[in-house]
Simulated scan of single mutants.
Amino acid sequence: MRARETQVEPSGMGRLLPWTTDEGRPCYLTSGSEGGIISKRADAMEAEQIHCGREVLTQSRGLLEGSRLGKVELRFVASRLVECLADTLRVAESRGIRLGVEDPRPDYDMEELADSEAEA
């Protein structure tokens, strides 16, 4: 997959892909590569992320409504919801870029928060 991926500054962005580099930086697909295999793989991954988010939301609602949860269970539910929300926001950002939303910048504060929580 790395062959056609590029890392560029937001001013010359291509399509924001739903994965990152090994260092955690965003990956972009050059605009001339739309419709190719990487683009289709990104489409499929985004669809799966949204589907997963819906499933986690449904299951979480059931857990929160149905019984008293302990700290461990609540932490698990919260961490899964956070993962799905991050994925969904990335899909929304990618689609916003492709629709021409002006000045689409990732929320670096949120990325730093996620990194600090992962370390904890």
Rank of each mutant, 00 (worst) to 15 (best):
M45W: 04
T20C: 11
Q7H: 06
R90P: 00
R61F: 12
E73R: 15
S33Q: 14
A3R: 09
L99N: 12
A44P: 00
L64N: 07
G14L: 11
A42M: 02
D115V: 08
R61E: 10
V91L: 03
K40W: 01
A42C: 03
V82H: 13
S11W: 08
R25G: 00
E117V: 15
P106T: 13
E93G: 03
S33V: 05
P104N: 05
E48Q: 13
S33L: 14
A3E: 05
A78P: 01
E5S: 04
V101L: 15
D115S: 14
L74C: 15
D109G: 08
A86W: 06
R68K: 13
R61Y: 07
G53W: 09
G53S: 15
P26D: 05
Q49P: 00
K40H: 04
G36E: 07
P18R: 02
R68C: 08
R80D: 11
Y28A: 02
A114D: 04
S116I: 12
A86V: 08
R95F: 01
G100F: 07
I37V: 07
V72P: 00
M110Q: 12
V56E: 12
A3Y: 00
A47K: 05
D107W: 11
I37E: 06
A86T: 05
M45V: 07
R68V: 15
E46R: 03
G66Q: 07
F76D: 08
D107H: 14
G14V: 13
T20G: 04
V8W: 05
T88M: 11
A42G: 01
G14T: 12
K40C: 02
G35N: 02
E111N: 07
R54K: 14
L29M: 10
S60K: 02
S11A: 13
E5P: 00
R15H: 06
D115P: 00
F76K: 11
E23W: 02
G100L: 08
C52V: 08
M45K: 09
I97H: 10
C84Q: 15
A118F: 11
E93T: 06
Y28T: 09
G66R: 05
G62A: 09
S39M: 00
E46T: 02
S31L: 15
R98P: 01
L74H: 13
R54P: 00
T6C: 01
